[in-house]
């Protein structure tokens, strides 16, 4: 039963990883950009929430109403003012610039909040649990997982059912021809990054409620998100959710074997899948 429990908990954890990954997957899909600062932006969201919920006395979950648009705006500005200048054939400039942003965000958080671990307090809901037969499932992990499913469904809807999604797909296909349609590439890219950071805001709040965080934890969040994207297959959002679940299960099962193996087990499963299925389990994009 312990093993079943580990798998259930891992599946729910996978929802969080899918949230880490969805924003990454989105901007790669639209503009082939890999944002090395993605993990640090997740952590930044958690800190922004910390400040806002402390200042206004809001539950961190409620403060999402403010954090999501705030991070979206930050994403739009970051893309328009900095990252758009690096977009082109050469992958080096965007990579190195986002790497620089990562170091800046990390150290700015260190200056602003110190290295002490922080946690977001969501109240009684954190400890609430519901029994499913012999297994008890926390309400919070359940909320995270359901949110992940909803977020991915929403992104899917935006991508395939709205004018913005049409613009994303057209720009992804042929940037120049999309421009001929009257689409301003710089704006489309800005919107993609805004959407990515809106998702990041949700991920950051859930991260902060689930575990304590400090300015240095962004790197591993980026890696978890990245692993979920690659396991699931590039360009497939539902695949990304599956990738997150696989990673989550690998980690909880690994931790069950030996506490020191939790993260390691996740990485090893990722490398294994890379060795056997280099394009991921459900690839859609070349």
């Amino acid at each position: 039963m312990d093993w079943v429990n580990a798998i259930v908990q891992g599946t729910l954890l996978g929802g969080l990883y899918a949230l880490f990954a969805a924003g990454l997957s989105l901007i790669f899909g639209v503009m082939r950009l890999v944002n090395i600062a993605h993990g640090d932006l997740i952590v930044l969201s958690a800190y922004v929430t910390l400040t806002i919920s402390a200042a206004l006395g809001l539950n961190p979950l409620l403060s999402l109403v403010l954090v999501v648009p705030l991070m979206a705006l930050l994403g739009y500005l970051m893309q328009r003012l900095i990252l758009n200048r690096t977009m082109g054939e050469d992958i080096l400039p965007p990579l190195l610039v986002t790497f620089g942003l990562s170091v800046i965000i990390q150290n700015a958080l260190l200056v602003g909040y110190s290295a002490d671990p922080q946690k977001l307090n969501a109240g009684a809901i954190e400890t609430a649990a519901v029994p499913f037969g012999p297994i008890t499932v926390g309400v919070m992990p359940l909320i995270v997982f359901v949110t992940a499913v909803v977020v991915i469904a929403a992104l899917q809807w935006i991508f395939y059912r709205t004018a913005l999604g049409r613009a994303f797909r057209a720009t992804s296909d042929r940037q120049d021809i999309a421009q001929l349609m009257g689409l301003n590439r710089a704006h489309v890219f800005g919107m993609a990054m805004a959407l990515s950071l809106a998702v990041t805001a949700v991920a950051g709040v859930f991260l902060g409620i689930r575990t304590s965080f400090d300015p240095a934890v962004g790197g591993s969040r980026l890696i978890f998100g990245f692993e979920a994207v690659i396991i699931g297959g590039l360009g497939n959002l539902w695949g990304t959710l599956c990738g997150g679940v696989i990673l989550g299960i690998a980690q909880t099962v690994g931790a069950k074997i030996h506490p020191g193996y939790q993260i390691l087990a996740g990485h090893l499963v990722f490398l294994l899948i890379l060795a056997v299925r280099p394009r991921g389990l459900f690839p859609r994009m070349d």
Binding site: R32, L33, V34, I36, I91, P94, L95, G219, S220, L222, I223, F226, E227, I230, I263, L264, H267, L268, F270, L271, L274, A275, P278
Partner: peptide
């Protein structure tokens, strides 16, 4: 293993290896 990843994804792949 990691040469299967292209461009920027190769970069993060190297990071995973370092973490391992």
């Amino acid at each position: 293993l990691i040469f299967r990843l292209r461009g920027a994804y190769f970069a993060i792949g190297t990071w995973v290896v370092a973490e391992v």
